[in-house]
């Protein structure tokens, strides 16, 4: 052992000198590059959406002002107002949330506050399977089951073959597991002491769930709903298949609001639907059609980004409350 001699000298200092470990450096360098690739992806998305959109807005037929104010989207006629597509997206999103929020929250409350382990053991895997089913299969389901069902209930003259309602309900089913699992996580994070305190005051289980646990988990639940909303906005296959390829151009002054503009029984193209349909042919580069999908894509990207950061902000506030 070196310790017996007790040399504290220059040789020791020399031995302790920092080694140059080239292999280690190469490894860490490439790991860093792997991490940085994600930045490149974001830059790529922003750059591609931005630059192609710029080309779009440079076209003679297009103006930024009209893009955001006009309520007619008719590329063949040189009309590029994004509102009909946003309308389609919003209609489907709202219907989807109307379906998914009650189901998702009830499921979450039931699973978190009521269910025995055995019942949980049955329902949880079912919800997980629902998550794993590809959206195109949900699209098939909308066309082959939901649309015919709605048409037989409300009459074929009322409900179109392509309609927002069918698409919205199926998108809702698709985001149920997302909302329920996020809400369940939020409720699981509520400290048990809070539940015990409420039971100790003589509250019933329902009162504990709805008056104590849900309010305490409210921001987590809200964040989950916002995430679900963002998923619905970005969902493509179900809406492309079930809601049709015709933008719902409207004129607020002339068209009946409930009979036409907000009518759930007729089709309306969404932003994602437009992108998918336009790109599914052999689209040629640098045409106005090609560029227009990027302008829509940019709008879609900003909308989902906004929703996702909103949900993160809600969660952050919630954390502060608890600390």
């Amino acid at each position: 052992m070196t310790s017996e001699t007790g040399v504290h000298d220059a040789t020791m200092a020399e031995q302790l000198k920092r080694r140059n470990r080239p292999f280690e450096r190469v490894i860490v360098g490439s790991l860093f590059i792997s991490g940085a690739i994600s930045i490149a992806v974001t830059i790529g998305i922003l750059w591609e959406l931005g630059s192609e959109s710029l080309l779009f807005f440079r076209e003679d037929e297009v103006s930024l002002g009209k893009f955001f104010t006009s309520t007619v989207w008719q590329p063949q006629a040189g009309e590029f107002g994004i509102w009909p597509l946003i309308l389609g997206t919003l209609l489907i999103t709202v219907i989807a949330l109307l379906v998914a929020v009650p189901i998702g929250l009830s499921a979450a409350i039931y699973l978190s506050e009521y269910a025995s382990p055995r019942v949980r053991g049955f329902f949880k895997p079912v919800l997980e399977i629902l998550v794993g089913i590809p959206t195109v299969v949900f699209g098939f389901f909308a066309i082959t089951f939901m649309t015919p069902l709605l048409r037989s209930i409300f009459g074929e003259s009322v409900v179109g073959f392509f309609n927002v309602l069918s698409a919205g309900i199926v998108v809702g089913l698709l985001i149920v597991p997302l909302i329920s699992s996020l809400a369940e996580d939020a409720m699981a994070a509520v400290p048990n002491s809070l539940r015990q305190a409420a039971y100790g005051l003589g509250a019933s289980r329902l009162e504990v769930s709805l008056r104590v646990v849900v309010p305490a988990a409210l921001s987590g639940i809200a964040a989950g709903i916002v995430i679900g909303m963002s998923r619905a906005v970005g969902e493509t296959m179900v809406v492309t298949l079930a809601s049709g390829a015709a933008p719902r151009n409207f004129d607020l002054a002339a068209d009946p609001v409930f009979g036409y503009v907000l009518n759930p029984f007729q089709g309306a193209q969404t932003m994602t639907g437009y992108i998918a349909i336009t790109a599914s042919g052999d689209i040629s580069y640098d045409t106005i059609d090609y560029n227009s999908i990027f302008a829509i894509g940019l709008t879609l990207f900003l909308m989902t980004l906004g929703l996702n950061s909103l949900s993160r902000r809600i969660v952050k506030r919630y954390r502060q409350e608890y600390d």
Partner: peptide, 30 residues
Amino acid sequence: INDLIQTNINNLAGVPSIIYGMLGLAVLVR
């Protein structure tokens, strides 16, 4: 930079898949 990478990854996880398709079209395909 590392915080940026982490936040960025969380953001990318929420980007709709069709946007990735557009990235693929504009950058990889073209």
